[in-house]
Each structure stands twice: as C-alpha cells, then as structure tokens.
Amino acid sequence: MLMNIKLIVGLGNPGSEYRDTRHNAGFWLIDRLAAQWHAPLRDEKKFCGDCARVRAHGRDIWLLKPQTFMNLSGKAVAALAQFYKIAPAEILVVHDELDLPCGRIRFKLGGGNGGHNGLKDIQAKLASPDFYRLRLGIGHPGDKNLVSAHVLNKPSPDERNLLEHAIDKSLQHLPLLLDGDKDAAVRALHSA
C-alpha cells in the first residue's frame, strides 16, 4: 500500500502541569515539526485541538495536538479526519511508548494499542486500528502499578536527552515517510 500521510497527530495532555511529562512526547515532536515547517499551531475549537495546515511533499498535511486529554484523543483526530475526508491509513500518530527503551523509535501500521489510552480512543473513534504510528520509547518502570506515575512525570535529564535525540532522528527521516519510502524510513528509524 502506498503511503500518503495527510495528518500527523502528536499525543499528549494539555496544560502546563503536563508540558514536560513523558506522556507528552508526541506533543514535543509536533511542536518541533511546526517550528521547522514555519507552521504556527492555532486553537481550533471544531477540531478540539491545536492544528496547522502545511503544503509539503506535494500535498496539504495537517498537524494536530489534541487538547482533549490523552484518554479522549480520538475525538480531535476523528473530527479533523472526518471533516477533511482523511482515511485512517493517511494518518500518522506520534506517541510515547512504554514497551520500548527510552530513546528508541519504532514505526508501524496498525496493530493493537498496548494499553495506551490515546491509541485506544483513536481506534474507537476512527472505527479502525489501521493508522500509522511513530512510537517514541519512554521505557517501562518495571511494575504495572507504577505506569501512571511514570508517564505523568518528567523524564530525568539523561532520559530527556535520549527523547530529544529520538525526536531529532524522527524529524530527520520524516521526509522518507512522507515521500512514501517506508522501507528506507524503517531502516533509518529502527537503527540504534
């Protein structure tokens, strides 16, 4: 299937108290991409999020940071996708990933949600799991009872550096994804 990404969503929680938490890694990437593309994000009430439209790689691409809180991310994604007739397979969701070591990156199409409430809600609202995911590893605390505190707290300075490096690498290789060269992107993103 030929990739044709029209919407890039970064997951996180709104509010200053969450700004620097691990759960907001998707927001961090969107903020960096918006700055790189000179595309200021604006609050769009009808899409329940901060978004921008950019002309890049021969098409319009939307950037979206849902402002609904993580558990309701699908509300914003579905609102924008339905309005602009963007199919699930034209969406790339960037999110924090517990099941990857901090700083690792993985890219895939579809699959489960791994207990990630943002992904779970997007799957429900789109009635499909078949969207692309860019997974930014934040590491697992080792005990499922510590997961909530882990994702809602700030990473250590070393972990933040690893995450920033992962975002740098993701942005460097994003053009491969947007140009449809999935295999080259996967090789580049998945290399240590």
Results as ranks from 00 to 15, higher is better:
48 C>H: 15
48 C>T: 03
48 C>D: 10
49 G>C: 09
51 C>E: 10
51 C>T: 14
51 C>G: 13
53 R>G: 07
54 V>I: 15
55 R>T: 08
55 R>F: 04
55 R>M: 08
58 G>W: 01
59 R>S: 04
59 R>A: 04
62 W>D: 11
64 L>D: 13
66 P>N: 11
66 P>W: 05
67 Q>Y: 10
67 Q>W: 09
67 Q>R: 05
69 F>Q: 07
69 F>E: 01
70 M>K: 01
73 S>I: 02
74 G>I: 06
74 G>L: 08
74 G>P: 09
76 A>F: 04
76 A>K: 09
77 V>G: 03
78 A>N: 15
78 A>R: 13
78 A>V: 11
81 A>K: 05
84 Y>H: 15
85 K>G: 08
87 A>I: 03
88 P>S: 10
88 P>C: 04
91 I>Q: 04
92 L>M: 13
93 V>A: 02
94 V>M: 10
96 D>C: 02
97 E>H: 01
99 D>A: 01
100 L>V: 02
101 P>T: 04
102 C>T: 09
102 C>D: 01
103 G>S: 12
104 R>A: 03
105 I>N: 06
106 R>H: 14
107 F>E: 08
108 K>Q: 07
109 L>C: 12
109 L>W: 10
110 G>R: 03
111 G>C: 03
112 G>H: 00
112 G>E: 02
113 N>Q: 04
115 G>N: 03
116 H>A: 03
117 N>G: 02
118 G>P: 03
119 L>F: 00
121 D>P: 01
121 D>Y: 05
122 I>D: 00
123 Q>K: 11
125 K>H: 14
128 S>L: 13
128 S>C: 15
128 S>T: 11
128 S>I: 09
129 P>F: 07
129 P>V: 06
129 P>G: 01
129 P>M: 09
131 F>W: 07
132 Y>N: 11
132 Y>G: 10
133 R>N: 10
135 R>W: 10
136 L>W: 05
141 P>L: 01
143 D>V: 13
146 L>C: 06
146 L>K: 14
148 S>R: 12
149 A>W: 02
151 V>M: 00
153 N>M: 05
154 K>H: 06
156 S>N: 09
157 P>C: 13
157 P>V: 12
160 R>H: 12
160 R>N: 08
161 N>T: 15
162 L>R: 14
164 E>Y: 14
164 E>A: 15
165 H>N: 14
166 A>L: 14
168 D>F: 15
170 S>H: 13
170 S>I: 11
172 Q>F: 13
173 H>E: 14
174 L>V: 12
174 L>D: 04
174 L>I: 10
176 L>Y: 06
176 L>T: 05
176 L>W: 08
177 L>I: 12
177 L>G: 07
178 L>P: 06
178 L>A: 07
178 L>D: 03
179 D>Y: 03
181 D>E: 05
